[in-house]
Computed example of a mutant assay.
Amino acid sequence: MFHVFFVTGGAAWVITYALMIRLGFRQKTYCMPLVALCANISWEFAYSFVTPYPGALRLAIIAWFTLDVVLLYQLLRFGPAEFPHLPRPVFHAMVLLTLAIAFPTVLTVNSFFHDPWGVYSAYAMEILMNGLFLAMLIARPSARGQTVPITVLRVLGTASITLAFTRWTPDFPNAHTHLLTWLYIGTTVLDLVCLGAVAYVTTRATQRLTTSAAGSTA
């Protein structure tokens, strides 16, 4: 059952990434915050090629990594426009520096917790990612780069993987700690907060457009 729930969650994340890519090209922006993307792609590279997950689980992670490469391309292509005060080479250097820091950090955290599955680093990144998605929602004048369907799929994907790890915990030295339990809870709470925030901003934008259209007609 662990494999079933993990692969189900993995499939939801594959669709999430694909929808992000489509939205990013359509809106000419990036859909995953810089630090979150660098951390994600580092984790996925580690568990695809350095210390790979077994069997079908590895295939899911390789799929994530492949799609994240496209998201990274969008970040490098469209990201500088979001920071007009930064020269393009400086922005690109900032991304590369973040990647250079993120990858050894992921490996170090996993080694410190004797965690061959990377659960600690993965859920710490999930909390970070949610915070950065909220910050992006605040920084941008709209929900640009985010949609309710994308957020729903992201939440469901993480929930399925969380269920896999909590219900059928793989055997490793620190598989049962209060810290890991808190990471599961914190991720779930922030997932729901993000979903509520994106739904609120999207609904408000739709209401403003409807009101504006009605006023124009009148």
Rank of each mutant, 00 (worst) to 15 (best):
A143I: 03
R144N: 08
I150T: 01
A143N: 14
R144M: 13
V155N: 06
P141A: 03
L156P: 10
A175L: 02
Q146L: 13
T147P: 00
R144Y: 06
D171Q: 09
G157D: 02
T158M: 09
V148G: 10
Q146W: 12
V148M: 12
T177M: 00
I161M: 14
T162C: 09
A135V: 07
A143R: 04
H178N: 10
S160D: 03
G157Y: 02
I150A: 04
F172A: 05
L163M: 12
R154E: 10
T169P: 04
L156M: 13
L156W: 11
L153E: 06
L163A: 13
T177K: 00
P149A: 02
V148R: 08
D171F: 00
G145K: 08
P170Y: 07
A135C: 03
T177S: 00
L137R: 04
G157K: 02
Q146M: 15
T177L: 01
D171S: 02
R140G: 01
T151W: 11
V152W: 14
T162P: 05
S142W: 06
H178A: 14
R144G: 01
I161C: 11
V148H: 12
I161V: 15
Q146R: 07
R167V: 15
S160K: 08
V148F: 13
L137D: 11
G145H: 06
A143L: 01
G145I: 08
L153S: 01
G145A: 02
L137M: 13
L156T: 14
I138R: 13
A164R: 08
G157S: 01
R167E: 13
H176Q: 10
V155H: 06
T158V: 13
L179T: 12
T166E: 15
M136G: 01
F165T: 14
H176E: 04
L153G: 04
T166G: 14
I138L: 05
P170Q: 05
L179F: 08
R167L: 10
I161G: 08
T166N: 15
A164P: 05
I161R: 09
A139G: 03
L153C: 04
A135T: 12
L137Y: 06
R144V: 05
I150E: 04
D171A: 10
V148Y: 12
A139S: 09
R154K: 15
P141V: 02
A139Y: 10
A139M: 07
Q146V: 05
V152I: 13
Q146K: 11
R140Q: 05
R140D: 04
R144W: 10
G145C: 05
R144T: 14
P170I: 12
S160T: 14
L137F: 09
H176Y: 04
H176K: 03
M136E: 10
T177D: 00
